[in-house]
Amino acid sequence: MESPIKLFPDSIFTVDDAGEVALLHAPPRTPAGHALRWGWLVPLLAIIATWNLASPGFTALLFFLLLSYPLTAVILANWIFPATLYQAHFDDAGLHLAIGHAQDPTADAQLFIPFEDITALVTLDHYRNMGRYGTSWFRSYIFQTKTAYGRKPHVQINTKRSAQSVHSVLQRLARLPAAQHIQLPPMVSIGNPPSPERLRAEREERQRRLQGEV
């Protein structure tokens, strides 16, 4: 192989035939993770302990801290924990997967699926219309394997790469000698994508709204 066949994943997980998903790997919760999970108890216990002792202003502050804790926890988690980095590529022997972060790309999971264990590769083209928030378009690779590599029987990789990019991956995969037995059915479209003319009209409409013309 001249170079690895990269899949450019945005997420990697396991999935069953009903579409229910599960994490490929759940990393152990760190002390910081436990603190963020149960941190809401601190203002709650403070409210209970000082209900008849504290001033109304202090009690109101504790209530505010309690109600705002979910947002605070999200902000702290994004600051404390590095962004997740997903990697996936084929070589001559099979599929290599890694989940981690920039400092340690395999911190959360590292997995190898040999070609002989892959029976079929199903590809999906997802389209979602989210109204005024625009549209979401992504593609999925679903690997059907003889061995389960998680709580669900199949491994799914989502990517924001174009359908043409996915077709290119499948064409290169089909030329590998070790992958000749893998079934590669045509890509399945999910949703009802608009025509190119309608997409162009929607873009022009959004542009007019941004400019205040509508």
Rank of each mutant, 00 (worst) to 15 (best):
M187R: 12
Q183H: 12
K160Y: 12
F64P: 07
S168R: 06
Q144F: 05
Q183T: 13
A60C: 03
E213C: 05
W79N: 08
L121Y: 00
V42C: 08
K146G: 13
F115W: 13
R37G: 02
M187E: 04
P186A: 06
T14Q: 00
F138G: 04
A35I: 08
S165G: 12
A26K: 11
V214S: 14
L41P: 06
A54V: 01
R172S: 13
D117Q: 07
R128N: 14
T72E: 12
G191D: 04
R151G: 14
R29L: 12
F81N: 03
S3H: 10
V214T: 07
Q180A: 14
G19L: 00
I182D: 09
S162W: 06
S140M: 10
P9C: 11
A109G: 02
A73C: 10
D17P: 02
G94D: 03
D104Q: 13
L111Q: 10
L210V: 15
G39C: 06
I142M: 00
F143K: 01
L184T: 10
H126F: 08
H101Q: 05
R175P: 07
P56T: 08
A26Y: 14
P9R: 01
K146W: 04
N129W: 03
A98C: 10
L97I: 07
A77Q: 14
L66Q: 00
R208K: 11
A102K: 09
L210Q: 14
Y133Q: 15
Y127L: 02
Q156H: 02
R139Y: 10
A49K: 01
Q180M: 15
G134F: 14
F138C: 01
T50D: 01
K152V: 02
M187Y: 13
P31Y: 12
P153H: 06
K160E: 09
H167E: 05
L210F: 09
S68V: 08
I48Q: 07
A60P: 04
H167K: 07
I75Q: 14
N192V: 13
R29G: 04
T159N: 01
V42I: 07
H34C: 11
L67Q: 08
F64A: 05
E204N: 13
D108S: 10
T123P: 02
L85V: 12
H25E: 15
G19Q: 02
L111D: 09
D10E: 12
F64V: 13
A98L: 05
G100I: 07
N52R: 15
T119L: 04
H25K: 07
P153M: 02
R209D: 08
M1D: 04
P196K: 05
P27S: 01
L184P: 00
S55M: 01
T119E: 14
Y86T: 05
L111T: 07
E116Q: 14
A148P: 09
F112N: 10
T50W: 01
A109W: 09
V155P: 00
A179E: 04
L24N: 00
I75F: 14
D17Y: 06
A98V: 06
P177M: 06
K6D: 08
Q164I: 15
Q103D: 12
T123W: 11
L45N: 08
T119V: 10
T123M: 00
V15G: 09
P153Y: 10
S162Y: 01
T84C: 09
L111R: 03
L170P: 03
K6C: 11
A120W: 02
T159M: 00
R139N: 07
P196T: 10
Q87N: 10
L121I: 13
G100M: 14
N192L: 11
